[in-house]
Amino acid sequence: MADKDPETMQQEMQSLKEKILQVNRDLFILEEDLLFPSSTQVNVFVSYDALEYFQLDGVSLKINDRPISNHLYTERELKAMNRGAVQRLFTGNLPVGEHELVAVVTGVGPEGRDYKRAVSMAFEKTSGTKYIELTIEGDDLRKQPGFRLKQWE
């Protein structure tokens, strides 16, 4: 077998790297499908647009009185969210039926005071993926932050 020139070997190496990356993506997708089947999957996201009235520190989530997620925000994450980013707080599985989601939000509110609020929502998990968003918005009329949970249709 003749020796291959370095350029041909480089092209083969690049081709192998691309194939490995594709296999890795495929495995990740399969793993997600196995761990979080769409029939039982629940996703919770947070969006933030209350910079004038509220500095977000963290969010804790509970479903059916069971803690499922805690997140403390970095300055970098807050900057991204102030530019319109939406963050996924939780992905998990729930059986079909009635459930309650509670989000506890902490931060610094108007006049530099510590601020802690809880918001809850009852929802029905049906077959298929469920998407819920915690929205943190400034209320210009009351000069306060507002918190609400909503389901995506």
Rank of each mutant, 00 (worst) to 15 (best):
L56D: 09
N64V: 11
M81P: 00
S47D: 08
L89Y: 06
T106K: 11
L51I: 13
V104R: 15
Y48S: 04
G107H: 11
A118L: 07
E124R: 14
I63V: 14
R142Y: 07
D65R: 15
G128V: 03
T91L: 05
A118Q: 10
G109P: 10
N82G: 10
E100D: 10
D65A: 15
E100A: 13
Y53D: 12
D49I: 01
S127F: 03
V108T: 15
F54Q: 12
G138F: 00
T135I: 04
E98Q: 15
V119Y: 03
R83V: 03
S60V: 08
E124L: 11
V104A: 12
R117H: 05
V104T: 15
A50F: 01
L78I: 11
G109T: 12
G97A: 14
K62L: 15
H71I: 12
Q87W: 07
E98T: 15
R117G: 01
L141A: 04
L89I: 03
N82T: 03
Y115A: 02
E52L: 15
K79M: 10
K62W: 12
L134A: 02
P110K: 15
V105I: 13
V104K: 15
D140E: 05
P110H: 11
G138M: 01
L94A: 02
N93I: 01
R142P: 00
L134N: 03
E75L: 14
D140W: 03
